[in-house]
Amino acid sequence: MFYVKNVPTWERALRVIAGLAVAVWSVLALGGPWGTAVALSAAGIVLSGLFGFCPACAMVGRKLDKAKR
């Protein structure tokens, strides 16, 4: 792989669930261009949960312990 996972499993699940909830809420409640923008942002959160890699966490040097993978 080209990246090293830097998000623990429990946080990955939380990111996927919260990201999907925010995406659905933004489309239903906000609508229009604001809803689309928030939904796209939430999609980024979901993707970081699915891949287990967060670029922002990597920039600040976050690493996982070997036992937490």
Score class of each variant (00 low, 15 high):
30 L>N: 04
64 L>R: 07
1 M>T: 10
48 S>M: 13
49 G>N: 02
46 V>A: 05
17 I>M: 03
64 L>H: 03
49 G>P: 04
38 V>K: 03
43 A>Y: 03
47 L>C: 08
43 A>T: 12
65 D>K: 08
16 V>N: 05
38 V>Q: 02
60 V>P: 00
18 A>H: 06
63 K>W: 01
36 T>E: 10
64 L>W: 02
21 A>F: 09
57 C>I: 01
21 A>V: 12
3 Y>N: 11
32 G>R: 11
59 M>W: 11
60 V>E: 08
13 A>W: 07
29 A>V: 12
17 I>H: 00
44 G>E: 04
61 G>R: 02
45 I>A: 14
36 T>S: 13
46 V>C: 04
37 A>N: 11
27 V>C: 10
32 G>T: 05
6 N>M: 07
63 K>G: 04
54 C>A: 05
9 T>V: 11
5 K>R: 15
46 V>E: 01
35 G>C: 08
13 A>E: 02
14 L>S: 10
44 G>C: 09
62 R>E: 12
55 P>L: 07
48 S>Y: 02
18 A>R: 01
10 W>T: 10
7 V>I: 15
26 S>N: 13
24 V>Q: 10
2 F>P: 04
41 S>T: 15
69 R>F: 13
61 G>M: 07
44 G>Y: 02
64 L>E: 04
11 E>H: 11
19 G>I: 04
27 V>K: 10
65 D>G: 05
17 I>V: 15
57 C>F: 11
42 A>P: 06
58 A>V: 04
32 G>L: 06
32 G>I: 03
53 F>V: 15
